[in-house]
Structure formats: C-alpha cells, structure tokens
Amino acid sequence: MSTCTLCGAEFGCAMADGSLEPCWCTALPPAVPVPQDAAGCWCPACLRAHIEAEQAKRQD
C-alpha cells in the first residue's frame, strides 16, 4: 500500500507493492509534468485531477 504525498489517501501502487502487473498510472498520459516539490506517488484521484488541470491550461 502507498500513501499519496498530496492528500494522504492510501492506494495500491504495483511498483511499490512488487506486482508483476503494470501500475494503474501507466495507463495515464505520460507527458504531464509533476511539480518538482511533489516527491513520491500520488493517488489516482490526485494524479487525474493534476492531469486534467494541466490539459486545461494547454487548451486556454
């Protein structure tokens, strides 16, 4: 189990859990920069919200 460094939620991370399956985050767009001050993994909700916000900025 991993803990989101942004909101503190617990979530499953295949890499941290030692799974042979790819992590859920590999299905998301890879071209979104994560802020440098955000060390560690984010939960699905936080990462998806960040991706959506970054995509919205690009469309404006």
Score class of each variant (00 low, 15 high):
11 F>H: 04
50 H>W: 13
2 S>K: 14
1 M>F: 12
30 P>D: 10
2 S>H: 09
1 M>P: 03
26 T>V: 12
6 L>I: 05
37 D>S: 04
26 T>P: 00
6 L>Q: 15
37 D>L: 04
50 H>G: 03
38 A>E: 06
47 L>T: 01
59 Q>G: 01
34 V>G: 00
33 P>E: 07
24 W>I: 09
31 A>H: 14
57 K>V: 02
27 A>K: 13
21 E>A: 03
28 L>Y: 06
51 I>Q: 09
46 C>E: 15
27 A>W: 10
20 L>H: 04
23 C>T: 02
18 G>I: 05
33 P>L: 07
32 V>S: 07
40 G>E: 10
23 C>V: 04
59 Q>L: 09
3 T>M: 06
30 P>G: 15
30 P>L: 09
20 L>M: 10
39 A>K: 15
7 C>Q: 13
46 C>L: 13
39 A>M: 07
30 P>V: 09
50 H>N: 01
19 S>T: 03
39 A>T: 08
8 G>H: 08
1 M>R: 10
16 A>E: 14
54 E>I: 01
55 Q>C: 01
4 C>S: 03
42 W>T: 00
43 C>P: 01
25 C>T: 04
1 M>W: 12
46 C>H: 08
14 A>M: 11
46 C>D: 08
58 R>M: 06
10 E>N: 11
17 D>F: 02
34 V>F: 04
60 D>F: 01
6 L>V: 11
5 T>W: 04
33 P>T: 12
16 A>G: 07
4 C>H: 07
29 P>Y: 09
37 D>N: 14
35 P>I: 15
21 E>I: 00
14 A>P: 03
31 A>N: 14
53 A>I: 03
33 P>D: 12
11 F>P: 02
39 A>F: 03
34 V>W: 05
38 A>N: 03
29 P>Q: 06
54 E>R: 06
9 A>Q: 12
48 R>T: 05
60 D>G: 11
30 P>N: 10
52 E>R: 02
26 T>R: 14
4 C>Y: 10
43 C>F: 12
